[in-house]
Amino acid sequence: MMPLMMCATLPASPATKAMYSRILTSGLFAGAAAGLITALLQLYFVQPVLLHAELYESGELVHFGADPVTAHPDLPGMFAEPVRDGLSIIFTMLTYTGYGLVLAALMSVAERQGHEINARTGLMWGLAGFVAFHFAPGLSLAPEVPGVAAADVGVRQIWWTITVAAAGVAMGLIAFGGNLVSYLVAALLLMAPHIIGAPEPETFSGPVPTEIGALFAARAFGIGMAAWVLLGSFAGYFWQAEGKRTDAAA
């Protein structure tokens, strides 16, 4: 009896080891791949808008100054600042690897409940992840260019975290709840942070033209959605592929 008890309390049974490996591998592969593509998309579509805004943040360009300002200043191209852009690539890959690990872990739980996980269903997971981690907090704390007025960063981070958690639970309820009450609770969880309200600045002091701010928010959301759909699909694909590989090895 004693050896059996020890067996029951040891965490690293072969099945558990295989599960660690499957979650970590699929999360890591999906996150790194989606993160790399996302980083390149961001550098091409989002970064020029950010660099443009920084010209106003630094005062090099002045909105509503004495003279009209060109909307098309010379901006450094992709990889003109290799260290800065390289760091952006690394940190985007890291960020999406974090998301990928969370996604793969939740996929493992869903599969145990009998839900099919593959590259196709992964698209829906990705969309849900985009809503939870990017769109829900961004609805009230819009993706912002440097230099805009905003409330204290710590308070915004708390609001961001609570909103992401609430939206994440809501996505789960919508996907797996299956009854009216869970849909209503999900709707409440999605709306509540915005009804309560995000931390706002006391006054507006942003020097950046509204055209640039709006374009930045739209681009950030668009690339964010593409990123998450890729991540979800990749995670679903690697989840299934890793499962087949470990089944074959067993």
Partner: peptide, 18 residues
């Protein structure tokens, strides 16, 4: 009993990275 541990571990690791 143990097979939720990998999922919990991955979520904590992922959120830590984020």
């Amino acid at each position: 009993g143990t097979s939720f541990l990998p999922a919990v571990f991955a979520v904590v690791l992922g959120l830590g990275i984020i």
